[in-house]
Amino acid sequence: MADEKRSRRRVTSVDVAREAGLSRATVSFVLNDTPGQSIPEATRQRVLQAAERLGYTPYAPARTLRSGRSDVAVFVLPDWPQGPTMTEFVDRAAQVLSRAGLTLVTHVHTGDEQRLARLWTTLTPAAVFGMRPFTSVELAGMRKAGISAILPAAEESGHDVSTTLWAKGVGRLQAEHLIRKGHTRLAYVLSDEPRLAALGQGRAEGAVEACAAVGLAPPIVSTIALDATSAAEATESWRDGASACEAAPTAVCAYNDEVALAILAGMRMLGLSAPADLAVIGADDIPGARFAAPPLTTVAQNSGELGARIAKALLEALEGGSPDLDLLPGDIHVVERVSA
């Protein structure tokens, strides 16, 4: 009965001391790897073997009090719908951090600075990464909580992964691909999901920059609901708005693959086909993109590799280094299929 009762509660260092037949102080020195203690190797092994037999694991809050921080890394993410790209980003980062003994926790930041400050008090994380730059108030709160490994650092406050890679970089690549195909009049179609407004605007701005670089007019920007009827209405509006001075778009960049699939469905309602009547390029390379009718040209993002690199940068920061957060051109690339 005693063994059954013990199995229902957390095993403590007291249990390990009893199992090993040693003092609590000796067991504590071994389990906490306390510096400055001369513990014979045979005694240390005796403690570790007893701990393993009982299934002992350190109590996280107590360990945090001793070290001043937890074995937790926090990724502060934007308030976006979390799709496959973000999932892969987080999963790879978690793998890298786990091998280093850290647990990754993600926090979706809705702009509430007080809530973010409470998070530092609750978790006392070892390291923090922000997908978007932290404000001066947020940085001050982290410093006050004793968090030293923060990316981007205060001097890199302009760093913004969401803008430089997943926004402008995507839109620029989409437009550049269509321009290389000979298209000179483009449209850009955004989602009407409010949480995607900032990211969508960034992608559209990337397409504007690509057009400006070769002397073309900026894309016509439309916003649609995620359905075929809304997409068909937008497509008709471009054609109806064409004039002798301004031609209708012959190619469209979609905010993401879901929007691109809606456009393709809307085109079918109008009796149009891609790429003959209108070339279409999406973004994110979701699994269904290759099965679209026609298969969808898209921009893929090496989000897993990016997640791993950021995790390694955090580990370097924990060691007192100054990691480089430069984003490589290969982090995003066009996957060419039939639609554009």
Score class of each variant (00 low, 15 high):
1 M>L: 10
5 K>M: 14
10 R>L: 11
16 V>A: 04
16 V>K: 03
18 R>Q: 12
19 E>Q: 08
26 T>Y: 03
39 I>G: 01
39 I>S: 00
42 A>E: 15
45 Q>E: 15
46 R>D: 01
46 R>V: 13
48 L>C: 06
49 Q>D: 15
52 E>S: 15
55 G>S: 05
55 G>K: 12
58 P>A: 02
61 P>H: 10
62 A>K: 09
64 T>M: 10
66 R>E: 01
66 R>W: 03
67 S>P: 00
67 S>L: 12
68 G>A: 13
69 R>A: 09
70 S>A: 14
72 V>A: 13
77 L>I: 02
83 G>E: 13
84 P>F: 06
85 T>P: 10
91 D>G: 04
94 A>T: 07
99 R>N: 15
102 L>H: 11
103 T>P: 01
106 T>Q: 01
109 H>K: 06
113 E>Q: 13
114 Q>C: 04
120 W>A: 11
134 F>D: 01
136 S>E: 13
138 E>M: 08
138 E>P: 07
140 A>G: 13
140 A>C: 02
141 G>Q: 07
143 R>T: 12
143 R>C: 10
145 A>C: 08
145 A>Y: 09
153 A>E: 14
154 A>N: 11
159 H>Y: 15
164 T>H: 08
175 A>T: 08
177 H>L: 13
180 R>K: 15
180 R>W: 01
181 K>I: 04
181 K>T: 08
185 R>S: 12
188 Y>C: 07
188 Y>H: 15
192 D>N: 15
194 P>W: 08
196 L>D: 07
197 A>Y: 11
202 G>P: 00
203 R>I: 05
205 E>Q: 14
206 G>W: 02
211 C>G: 06
214 V>R: 04
214 V>A: 10
216 L>E: 12
224 I>V: 07
224 I>M: 01
227 D>K: 07
228 A>F: 09
229 T>Y: 08
230 S>G: 12
244 A>T: 13
244 A>H: 12
245 C>N: 14
247 A>R: 15
248 A>P: 11
248 A>H: 04
257 D>L: 06
260 A>K: 02
260 A>L: 05
264 L>I: 04
265 A>F: 05
266 G>S: 10
266 G>R: 10
266 G>I: 05
269 M>G: 12
275 P>A: 10
281 I>S: 04
282 G>K: 02
285 D>Q: 12
290 R>H: 07
290 R>V: 14
291 F>W: 12
296 L>Y: 11
305 E>H: 12
314 L>R: 00
316 E>I: 11
318 L>C: 13
319 E>C: 07
321 G>A: 12
322 S>N: 07
323 P>E: 00
323 P>F: 05
329 P>S: 13
330 G>F: 06
331 D>E: 10
332 I>L: 08
334 V>F: 04
338 V>E: 06
